[in-house]
Amino acid sequence: MTITATVLDEDMTLTVAQLCESLGLELDELIGYVQEGLVEPRGISPQTWSFPGPALKRLHTALRLRRELEIDLAGTILAVELLEEIEHLRARVHALELLLGEAR
C-alpha cells in the first residue's frame, strides 16, 4: 500500500488543535510563541487561528531547544531564527561553492 504524504508548505493549513496535539503543547504556550512572533497565525483570535505548514517544524524545534537546553522563551526564539539563518546561509554557500567550481 502506498501512503500519500502531505507537504507542510505555506499553502497548507494547521489548526490550533492539530498543532497542540502534535506537539503536546498547551494553548497558553502556543499563545506565548505567537506573542513573541515565532509563528504567525491567520485569523484574529485563538479560536479561529490557523497556521501555515512550516509553523509545525519551527515550533517543534523551539520546544526541543527550550526543553533540552533549558533556555527561556526569548532565547529559544532567537536560537530558532539564527538556526534558520544558518541553514539559509549554508545553502547559499553550497550554491556559491558550486559556482566557484569548488564543489567538484
Binding site: I3, T4, A5, T6, V7, L8, P54
Partner: peptide, 21 residues
C-alpha cells in the same frame, strides 16, 4: 517499512506528514 508517495516540488528541510503512521 512504508511505501510513501512524495509529491513533486518538495524543498530542502521541508516536512511531509504521513497521517496515522
Amino acid at each position: 517499512t512504508l511505501q510513501v508517495r512524495i509529491p513533486s516540488g518538495i524543498v530542502q528541510g521541508q516536512q511531509i506528514r504521513l497521517a496515522g503512521q
